[in-house]
Amino acid sequence: MTQYGFYFDSTRCTGCKTCTLACKDKKDLPTNLVYRKVFDYEGGMWEQGANGTYQTTAFMYHLSLACNHCENPACLENCPTGSISKDEATGAVISGAEETCIGCGTCVQVCPYGVPAVNPDTEKSVKCDMCIDLVAAGKQPICVESCPLRALEFGPVEELRAAHPDAVDGIAPMPAGTETVPAIVIATCPAAKMPGDTEGFVANEWEVAAN
């Protein structure tokens, strides 16, 4: 299996959420669901120095996250009905098989990236499916295509890592990723904080918790 994944360039992302909306449009999602979320991570302050001048430690950056199609997906491992599968060809993690999902929300509970949601209309688990139909047709996922800043790339994750040797596996507010091994590659902007950071906070918590 070749594991496909996303590359996200935090030096480019302006937090415009075009990826979120393009995905919503392609997937025809209701108002209360999104498959790709853009986190605003902020922190720091202005501090007065001994000489009376002010220095800033303020920082902020964006992080566009969808399903990371993890190599060790907690959602799949804990689903009691086997409704989540990992695609042999791409490593895409696909949730909520229509005929078997019981809408128990276990996948929602265990994913450390807040990715799956139980669709309140269908009572089935839904999430990013890597635009598997487009990928099978040799195209790119819609979120990647739509980004006006070209901050997203998609491909075999090892190729993405090779193409971006300075990139990392995660930045705050993502967790370290040791549990699920997310298939994601991230270019760090100067403001970026590493997983485990406690200086910043998610400034748009309500927005990203909307699912």
Binding site: T81, G82, C101, I102, G103, V118, T122, E123, K124
Partner: peptide, 9 residues
């Protein structure tokens, strides 16, 4: 459960 009818699975 959202869909208890599938509980047999």
């Amino acid at each position: 459960l959202g869909t208890p009818t599938n509980a047999l699975y």
